[in-house]
Write a protein that binds this DNA or RNA. Structure first.
Length: 259
DNA sequence: ATGTCACGCTGGGCGTGA
């Protein structure tokens, strides 16, 4: 099974680059985040023309997650319920069973600043994920992929000095919350194939961050009950393309899994 | 250089979020 996770930063704005992604990688499943579309605006018909069926949790202006599944694969037991979610009004979680694999697309809250009210909500969201995933991992093959808004290790940050006291994404509690998911019996797919070295997935739009290598690895795929045979970050998708279609600030991560 | 993008509301810029 080939799975891609991609924070599109608006599916409407990114639409010209969706066929490009599907052509380039021919994924079985795509986990999308930040679709920023209302449910009645979700492009189900256009995706069907590309050979994909979508299930989604949509909100409108902000957030929004989806699973795109290649036509012909079995999809069952779709749910956007995350018990204990501290922000249930925000569309940040969708899961379904695809060909017997429980797959979730997640958009973890940003957290903004450690001193803000949003930081503890981020930690509570990650704790809710742990509680939800514990029985799922115990039950069978599982993938949870998306924008975790946490850089798990120092090597996942271009410069720690850019994250002084009070900055999120690199704090001990955030990293411990992600480690607690791994401790359920999951592996961080990128680190399963490449234990050391940069594999950034996000670069700020500002300041020429992509060109300067100022990135973070915050888009993760955690896997249980399956082998990980390859993981690549599609950096071409972060560049401007020949047609001038703007990129997301996140690159897609392509994950190959084996039974 | 906090230097960009995308949204909604608007009636051509601003507030919000990342």
């Amino acid at each position: 099974m080939r799975l891609v996770t991609w924070n599109v930063n608006s599916l409407k704005a990114r639409w010209p680059r969706v066929p490009e992604l599907l052509d380039a990688h021919a994924p079985d499943v795509v986990c999308l985040q930040e679709t920023k579309l209302a449910a009645d605006a979700f492009p189900h018909a256009a995706l069907a023309e590309l050979g994909y069926v979508a299930v989604e949790s949509s909100q409108g202006r902000w957030n929004g997650v989806a699973l795109l599944v290649r036509e012909g694969l079995t999809v069952a037991d779709v749910s956007d319920e995350l018990p204990g979610n501290p922000v249930p009004e925000e569309a940040r979680w969708i899961e379904a069973t695809v060909e017997g694999v429980r797959v979730a697309s997640v958009y973890v809250p940003n957290g903004r600043e450690v001193a803000s009210e949003w930081y503890p909500r981020k930690l509570d969201f990650l704790a809710a994920m742990r509680d939800r995933l514990a029985p799922v991992v115990a039950a069978g093959p599982t993938v949870v992929a998306g924008d975790f808004n946490v850089a798990p290790e120092d090597q996942d940050v271009w410069d720690l000095a850019a994250f002084p006291e009070g900055a999120t994404h690199v704090t001990g509690p955030e990293r411990a919350a992600v480690a607690a998911l791994v401790d359920l019996g999951m592996v961080d797919a990128q680190r399963a194939v490449q234990p050391q070295g940069e594999a950034f997935t996000w670069w700020d739009y500002r300041g020429g961050a992509f060109h300067r290598g100022h990135g973070l690895r915050i888009d993760l795929a955690l896997v249980a009950g399956l082998g990980v045979t390859a993981v690549t970050v599609d950096r071409d998708a972060r560049r401007n393309n020949a047609a001038g279609d703007k990129p997301s600030d996140h690159a897609p991560v392509v994950v190959d899994l084996s039974r």
